[in-house]
Design a protein around this nucleic acid. Sequence first.
DNA 1: ATCAATGGTTTAGAGTATCAAGCATTCTGG
DNA 2: CCAGAATGCTTGATACTCTAAACCATTGAT
Lengths: 142, 142
Amino acid sequence: MSPVDETQAEVMELFRRLSLVMRRSAVERLADVGLTPPLAIALHHLDEPIAMGALAERLSCDASYVTGLADRLEELGLAERRVDPTDRRVKQLALTEAGLRFRRQARERLYDGAQMLAPLEPDELEAFAAALRKIVDAAESP
Amino acid sequence: MSPVDETQAEVMELFRRLSLVMRRSAVERLADVGLTPPLAIALHHLDEPIAMGALAERLSCDASYVTGLADRLEELGLAERRVDPTDRRVKQLALTEAGLRFRRQARERLYDGAQMLAPLEPDELEAFAAALRKIVDAAESP
DNA sequence: ATCAATGGTTTAGAGTATCAAGCATTCTGG
DNA sequence: CCAGAATGCTTGATACTCTAAACCATTGAT
């Protein structure tokens, strides 16, 4: 029955608010190009062809959700599934030509939200990133 | 056409991952007590009766969403709407007796996710909180 | 050759919101 | 005072995000 640390509770609350603001801003910026945030994020992870399951892992979401994202990216002509010749169960998701062209703008729209980080001085940003890395590493390691 | 700063982009990605982990962990912990995260968060903000609109502002969400949260809290017997006598348009949402008793456990379950912050040393945590405050303040001020 | 395991999809569902329209109440200018 | 604007909340429609369970095809292991 740990008493909740005040600073920790405040951080949780701030974190929640920032998540909301960031998502809303991302939704807004991406709307012009017809993408939703998860689609843009998936696109961002397609530097090279990647198996559906591996992509799910990178996005930390269920594989079945990735199926839907891939469907949509295919409909938009931005990516395509390629059956892996070495294991026909596996499907590699790969950018198309159009996807490659499109990706840069999408990425910029997606990460323009990073301008919210502008109030931080470079060293503050670095410390912030380090703290996040620490937390995420600990949280994601089983 | 600002080139995306690498550290900034990394921070955005880490932030996204942490949001996911935190939400999943909150969902899991709150399931036992029959609450969803937004309900627990709303409860957490009910230190004293608060008008629906004011609550929406605190939660940074649409007022219509708060209507649904309040409905659910009333169904659970944790809160009740009271018509403000000085302005009959306004409804104050207030904890019931049961809600008051319930709130402590809910809060602990909600903020147990704060244990994810444990890897940070106290001074790191403080710096992290300060950075978040800075960002959120800037992001939320119009 | 069979049977378990793996990769991916389908389906169903819950949760998280937002927006537009509407009702009741209050406020304001004439 | 009163017509109309503004405010507070609710309703209803809709979109998105995500998970879990059941399912099919393929592969690997005995």
